[in-house]
Design a protein around this nucleic acid. Structure first.
Lengths: 343, 343
DNA sequence: CTGTTAGCGCATTCAT
DNA sequence: ATGAATGCGCTAACAG
């Protein structure tokens, strides 16, 4: 900036002292009405805006939140980001966004960078890489430094902090159960996220539903997707050998992808095979047939996470620290065309 | 932060002065090897990280970029964001993300906030609201304050700055032309973004292609989408009256949506109607049939914009200011299943 | 080679 | 009601 207008300059121009100007602009009752008016007029005239970096240094808080997500291209995370941004702005905060790209290194580095005074707290969903490494030191240590962390969706029990998740187990259980009750004999589970707690919970829900509702000799199969191309091959071979009439997919893309493979074989959805996916996305609304999905309420999830974090940031430090809490959001099954459901 | 370790504390602990510690950590040649080693060891031991806010204040730059996009849920913008974030991190910058949500007010407010010292420069794609209002004061004035701005995709000639765009006119011209040359008689254009320069350019390209290649009595129609539900109704009525065999859509969602309406009428894509969309998204790869699209290379676009901005940020202020430049990225037509194309 | 000093812009305590 | 002085944590010019 060539010549940013500062308090000092306003002070010169107005013939008041810096502190008077500062107080006047802050509507401090110590200052007389006339001075306030003069100063404010001048400030407006010169288009004064306080330097936020200086203020941050002084106040020792930045009113900025660090947001770390694995991947913005996944619609769910994009939605959460929308919720976070919206709520943050509402409450007077900015967000610094980092995309971990599912990598431990990038996640850790971002946290370490931003943790050096750039942000007041973090909202994070853990990367696959971090799960694999099973190392949460970077998170624990920021919490120890008294920088609050809120985890959402992909969380871990190894770190104590506020969390916001959805009822993964239950949702998956429910989806599977509904398929079975509406006549599916052989329901399989497809997942590209088996290396996250979220994926694991969804598998558990699936298994439990089979146990509770399916005949013992029914198909019970979890297909892990790592590479989509390889999976296509594998899945086609699989369908050559087995008869499937229901699919629960752990996310949106895998649901759509699987559905298209099914249709590509000349099978009909939902007549021959019913498909239910987990998601929040546009894909599902606009697929053909439209996908029946478990709505994860991403925007709301983001808002809640943000509120939790800011609440903690703004609580008086002499108050008792509130206990950490985990909020579980209930999903909603959105019925579209890809599954025949009774109820 | 309860007790962030600072230079001052390191100075106490090491019995050197603050400045010596500072210089030692910065590998300043003034400092002896032994001292450097001692200090660095201590710093590592206490896990010292410099306070970036203080450094920003001192250096008068934040190494942070403000990114303002209309909507992260649109895949194209999400991709650009990925490109920006990636390149920024690579070059040692953070990004503060604001979502304007297509609103002038939010856009202006974000810029004004962040322009007060929080960021060194901006990367922005203009909101629909701003186009409507036709007011670019908030942008011009930040440039006047010597905060560089790079605009991408949705740009305006009313502001002089670096820009990165794609060849919208040409791409649209080309897509339309290809449809006509492969036999489409009646190609219409569908757009939800007609209130942006991008949308306007694409319409122009469409019109020119009709002019150059289509028979004079062929259909020539631009359908504007404001509300998708209303559009569905309108479009169905439209197809009752007119015969269409080609559709060019100005973005991804409108392409998919239109295609699904067509299929919903029992028509076949691409046999009865060919569809080409503009996009960068997952939707197109996974639609049924997969959508033939104009790839806008969002990630690369984001990277280029970031490089341009940072170059300007880091150029010596005593050098001559470089001229503002506009980079035009060439799109690529990705042929999938939704259009019969000859070549 | 090391230390003292000043100052980035702001808020605030303590005089006056 | 106003102003002088201090310090947030850091860098760097200057002095020794």
């Amino acid at each position: 900036m060539s010549n940013p207008i500062t308090l000092k300059k306003l002070a010169h121009l107005s013939n008041f002292s810096i502190s008077t100007v500062s107080k006047a602009l802050a509507d401090n009752p110590e200052i007389s009405k006339e001075t306030k008016e003069k100063v404010k007029k001048l400030a407006k005239l010169y288009n004064y805006t306080p330097n936020l970096v200086a203020r941050s240094l002084k106040e020792r808080k930045t009113r900025t939140i660090g947001v770390i997500i694995p991947n913005v291209l996944a619609h769910f995370f994009a939605k959460v980001l929308v919720g976070i941004e919206k709520e943050a702005v509402e409450l007077g905060y900015n967000i610094i966004t980092c995309i971990s790209d599912e990598s431990y290194d990038k996640e850790a580095k971002s946290i370490q960078m931003l943790g050096s005074g750039s942000v007041d707290g973090f909202i994070i969903s853990i990367s696959k890489g971090t799960y694999q490494k099973n190392d949460y030191q970077h998170l624990s240590s920021t919490i120890e430094k008294n920088i609050p962390v809120v985890m959402f969706d992909r969380v871990t029990e190894h770190v104590e902090c506020d969390k916001v998740v959805i009822n993964d187990f239950e949702s998956s259980y429910d989806a599977t159960k509904k398929l079975i009750l509406s006549g599916c004999k052989n329901v399989i589970f497809v997942s590209p996220i088996n290396n996250t707690n979220v994926g694991v919970e969804r598998v558990k829900g699936y298994n439990k539903a089979l146990e509770d509702y399916s005949s013992p000799k029914a198909l019970s199969e979890i297909l892990i997707i790592e590479d989509y191309k390889e999976f296509a091959q594998y899945f086609n071979d699989y369908l050559d050998k087995k008869t499937v009439d229901g699919i629960v997919a752990a996310d949106e893309l895998s649901a759509i992808y699987t559905m298209n493979l099914v249709i590509g074989r000349g099978l009909k959805v939902p007549e021959d095979i019913s498909v239910i996916g987990f998601t929040d996305g546009i894909l599902s609304e606009n697929s053909n047939p439209p996908l029946t999905t478990v709505d994860q309420h991403g925007i709301e999830l983001g808002e809640i996470a943000t509120r939790k974090l800011i609440q903690r940031l703004e609580q008086n430090s002499n108050e008792d620290q509130k206990e950490y809490t985990t909020t579980t959001l209930k999903t909603t099954l959105i019925k579209r065309g890809s599954a025949r459901l009774d109820s």
